[in-house]
Simulated scan of single mutants.
Amino acid sequence: MPSEAQHHVAVEADVAVIGAGPAGLFAVFECGMLRMKCVVIDTLEAIGGQCAALYPEKPIFDIPAHPAIAGAALIERLAEQAAPFAPIYLLGRRVDALAEQPDGSFRLQTSKGEVVRARAVIVAAGAGAFGPNRPPLNDLDAFEATGAVRYMVSRREELRGKRVVIAGGGDSAVDWALSLKDIAARVTVVHRRPKFRAAPETVAQMEAAAERGEIDLAIPYQLHGLEGKDGVLDHVVLATLKGEERRVPADHLLAFFGLSMELGPIADWGLGLERSHIAVAPATCMTNIAGIHAVGDIATYPGKLKLILQGFSEAAMAAHAIHPRIFPGEALHFEYSTSKGVPA
């Protein structure tokens, strides 16, 4: 598992990577291959960005050498690839402030109080900071704190034998209902109307599973309340628009109401923005501020393609462009990984 730094401490690294999605994780590898140490900061509680939050079970078809790979599996492989370089992960917090220091380094302040000092920054924040749309339920914070209410699933096995209520009508809700039906004690899907916004094929599979009694469908219901004590969930209370209530025994509520996305504090850092994206130089992915680079979906330049594989390429270019900043005066002789291996 990725190691996390303690709260309210100073963290030193060569490169601060903002965003733990595919491009950010591959940036850790590319920096590591050039002997640069990384700290990775992300607003979500787990690595993976949108891959993990939105489509962990969905196959991705345009990753080289993988005719098809699920989003969660891709993140696992990227984390494994980055692991030899021991990145520091600061998860579940955003970067509230970024300021250049007199010596040319950068000081980053997180929402949980850490101060990060780095010689360079790679912004790999996807569409910006994003978090879940939370249902308006009483005592929600207490159940979130214990993990009884979740907005993403990092480990499927944690829900084995549990009574799970899934709320939502999109791909995430349907995908997880199908994924958990064979290991959870009970899966109940709550949606306000019979029509789902997910892929028709997976909706058909869910409906067939419901007919076989493998999944319970609570339609047309909405979340109305949570019952339990000290953050331990006992029941999820549902209600129709007519006020008819239903209590469903539950250990966990998975609420999939989409993500709210915004640039957040990034918009105040003085970077050259173009329609909520950061403009960069194509050859180096450097922004208008020397030492700050942007890769992945948040970066823009003429001819940009919003593909994961392009984010990988940008991560490599940014790492090589940063190297002279970390090792001034040291010549960088390009070597293939087949020749140099993975540095210790």
Rank of each mutant, 00 (worst) to 15 (best):
A5S: 14
H7C: 13
V9G: 00
V11A: 05
A16T: 06
A16Y: 03
P22M: 05
P22V: 06
L34T: 01
K37E: 15
G49K: 04
E57T: 13
I60A: 09
A72C: 14
Q81C: 02
Q81K: 08
R93G: 11
L98R: 08
A99G: 09
G104A: 11
R119Y: 06
A125N: 09
F130D: 09
N133I: 13
P135T: 01
N138E: 15
D139H: 15
D139C: 08
A148I: 04
R150V: 14
V153W: 08
E157D: 14
K162Y: 00
A167N: 09
S172V: 07
L180R: 08
K181F: 05
R192M: 01
A204L: 07
M206Q: 07
E211R: 13
E214L: 12
Q222T: 15
L223V: 00
H224I: 06
E227F: 05
L238S: 07
T240H: 02
T240K: 02
G243K: 00
G243R: 03
E245D: 04
P249G: 07
H252R: 11
E262M: 10
L263E: 10
T287K: 09
A294L: 11
P302A: 12
K304P: 09
L305V: 15
A315I: 01
F327N: 09
S337L: 15
T338S: 12
S339A: 14
A344K: 12
